[in-house]
Structures are given as structure tokens and as C-alpha cells.
Amino acid sequence: MTMESAVADTEGATREPVLSLKGVSKGFGAVRALTDINLDIYPGEVVAIVGDNGAGKSTLVKILAGVHPQDSGTIMFDGQVVSIPTPTASRALGIATVFQDLALCDNLDVVSNLFLGREIRNGLSLDEEEMEQRAWSLLRQLSAKIPSVRIAVASLSGGQRQTVAIARSLIGEPSVVILDEPTAALGVAQTAEVLNLVERLRERGLGVLLISHNMADVQAVADRVVVLRLGRNNGDFHVADVSYEEIISAITGATDNVVTRRASAHAGSASAAAAAADASGTGTVESGITEDFRTHETPAPGTEENPQS
């Protein structure tokens, strides 16, 4: 089977996607923020979601984080169809979301922030020693550079704060971590720190969904790039096989010819897959599309006429 062989070289190909979206749509009144979005995330894979402002990235994050539910389409987690009505439900499933505004309590120290809402107790009292020890072992695993966990979060640098926020998401032993623009406010060194952290998450076998505007970051750390444009899937590339220009053109839609053909092919096969309602089958179809992109990719944008537009 060609599709099977197409995905055989990708990591996690033999596994089921840990998180899988099929035909997910979401509207806000007259605005169709997301239309028929398909997305698979495999364990140990970093998937970057890129797209212009208003492309629907944050809306997608919010659906997965349980901030607001989708209007239609299905979300599958570990092969089960699930609904995510609340943030608590999202967390209970094993989805950890690090929002762009990190939501840390500046007046509390690192340990308190890491365990906020999930404090370890020893009877009535907090077990500070256990929490501090776990905090250190977690930060060590992430090779995080935090000098002391007993200083207020307010005195940390931007990268360190991002680190604390990401480390906090791991306390609940999630299987998927969603990072919304984790490097947006960071300097060069701090960005590198966070990207190292993302790689560490992948090594732990987590599925990582990385929202980013920064193409350099995406190419540095992601395994796959999913492009959103005007609320629709507009490409799904293996990072190793795609050039910067190709991603940019998919984001901006500058090469409508290439992109729309693939996008429409993508949408067609994805909705067929949704109809089939077979988890393993859809995973391979999705990756098959990726293969399709690779083998037939036009090298330069704008060289091919678009027959249907």
C-alpha cells in the first residue's frame, strides 16, 4: 500500500496519533474562524502551526484547551472521540496548554507556581520539601537554567518565565503540550533555551503543538508544519523537505496555484477520511498527503497556473 509506505519513514508512523482533529469548524457569529480543519499529532512529534494574523491559530488552541468547543467536527484523543467543554476537561485528558500570556503569579515563588492548584499535601500542610525536590528534578530533566526555585517568579527573565510555564504544564503528566507563541517575546539566547526545551519535550515522547510566527524557530525545532490560511488547512509539510519560501507562500497564499490545489486535495481526502471514521486509516491518509506534497512539490512559487482557483 503506497500510503503505508509513504509514512513508514516518519516517526510515529506505526503508532496512532495521540490527538487527531477531523473536519473541525468554529464560527464567531458571521466570522468563520475555522473551517474543516484536519490535524494529527503523533507522540514524540513537534507539529508547528503557522499562519497569518487571524488565520485561526489561537482559535484552534482554545478549542483544544477547552476555552470554547468546536461547532462541528470530531476530536479524537488516543483513538477515542472526546469532547472538551472546559479547561479542566482538557487538562484531565492530558492536554497541557501554555498560553501566550503565561499566567504565572508574580508574587509566588517558582515552586508555588509550578504546583499551583495541584499542591502536594502532607495531611493539612503543604509538603514543601517534596514539591521543591520534584521541582528541581523536573527542571533538571528539562535542563532548565533557573538558579533558585525559592525566588519570586517576577525576578526571572522572560525565557525563565517561559520555562516555568512549560515545566508547570508537565506537572500533570500530559501527553500533548500546546505552546502558543512561546518565543514571541524572547531574545536570541532565551529563544534557544525554549527551543531546547521543546526538543526535550519531544524526547519525553510528548506530542507538541507549537504555534509560532517565527519561521526560523519552526524550521529549527518542528517535525511537521501545518499551515492555516483564513481558517482552512493550507498545507502540511515535513520540515526537512520544505523550503522557507514554500512555507511563506502557503501562509500568504502568494502561490495560489500550488497551494490551493494541494489544499483542496487535502480537504477532499480528509473529509473522505472523516466519513470513513477509522482512526488508523485517517492517520495514514493525512501522512499520505504529506508525501504527496513532497513528491510533487513545485520548486518555485508562481510557476504553475491554477486551473480552478
Binding site: P87, T88, R91, F99, D101, A103, L104, C105, D106, N107, L108, S112, L116, G117, R118, E119, R121, L124, S125, L126
Partner: peptide
């Protein structure tokens, strides 16, 4: 106690406390 920690958390940032559950 956990209650005391949540008092400080809410006083520091309501939104962060809410998102922490």
C-alpha cells in the same frame, strides 16, 4: 496550606489562579 496558597495566588493574579484550576 493549600487554601492559603490560593489566597496569595488570587491576590497576585486572578487569571493565573483561575487557569491553574
Amino acid at each position: 496550606t493549600k487554601w492559603g496558597r490560593s489566597v496569595f495566588a488570587v491576590g497576585g493574579s486572578v487569571e493565573a489562579a483561575r487557569r491553574a484550576g
